[in-house]
Simulated assay, not measured.
Amino acid sequence: MSIRDVDIGHFPLIEVAGTAYQRGRLHGGAAPERVARSARLYRRQLTRQGLGGDRLTRLALGMRSVIERFDSAYLDEMQGIADGAGVPLADVILINCRTEMMFGQSELKMVCRELEDGCTGLVVLPEHAASGGLMHALNWDWLQECADTGIVLRMRRDGADQPDLLLFTEAGALGRHGLNSAGLSMSVNFLSSDRDYRQLADVPLALVRRKMLEAPDMDSAMKVLWRTRRFCSSNLMLTQAGIDRGGQPLGDAVNLECAPDEIFWQAPQHGLLVHANHWLCPVARSKLRELGLADNPDSLYRQRRVETVLQQALYRGSGKVDWACIKNVLAGAFLHAGGVLRKPGADGQHATVATTLMDVAAGVMWIARKPCQSQVFAEYRL
Rank of each mutant, 00 (worst) to 15 (best):
A313K: 05
A346G: 05
L153C: 10
P297I: 10
A333E: 10
L250I: 12
M237R: 02
A31G: 08
G332W: 02
A20W: 11
F377G: 04
A173Q: 13
W142M: 06
E290M: 10
A368K: 04
R369T: 12
L179I: 15
D54F: 01
L125E: 02
D71T: 11
A17F: 13
I67Y: 01
L250F: 04
I263A: 02
L341R: 07
P297F: 07
S318W: 01
L46T: 09
R302M: 05
R342E: 09
S181L: 02
T239N: 00
R157W: 10
T47K: 13
V353K: 03
C281M: 07
N255K: 12
L288D: 08
S2C: 01
H270E: 15
Q79E: 12
Y380S: 04
F264H: 08
S106T: 13
A73H: 11
E100G: 06
A378P: 03
E257R: 09
G363D: 05
D76K: 13
S374P: 00
D91M: 09
L46S: 08
V16R: 05
L357A: 11
L330D: 02
L94H: 04
A324H: 12
R113I: 06
T228V: 11
P371V: 08
T99R: 00
A201K: 04
G86K: 04
R48D: 12
E107Y: 02
R40E: 14
R98G: 05
R316W: 01
I367Q: 01
A173M: 14
T120N: 00
F190N: 12
A267P: 00
R43S: 10
L41P: 08
E116Y: 04
M365E: 01
M1N: 07
L122W: 09
E114W: 08
P12E: 07
S192E: 15
S374M: 07
Q269Y: 08
Q312M: 06
W265T: 15
V6T: 15
N139T: 15
M1I: 03
G172A: 10
A267C: 07
M237A: 09
G175K: 03
S374A: 13
R25C: 03
Y21N: 10
K223M: 09
G271E: 04
G150L: 04
A276K: 02
W140F: 15
L291M: 15
H270M: 09
V16A: 15
A60R: 00
Q312E: 12
A201G: 14
W366V: 02
V66L: 01
A129P: 03
K327T: 11
R230N: 11
G338M: 04
P12Y: 12
E107Q: 08
T57Q: 14
V283E: 15
E145T: 15
D117H: 13
A36S: 14
D164P: 05
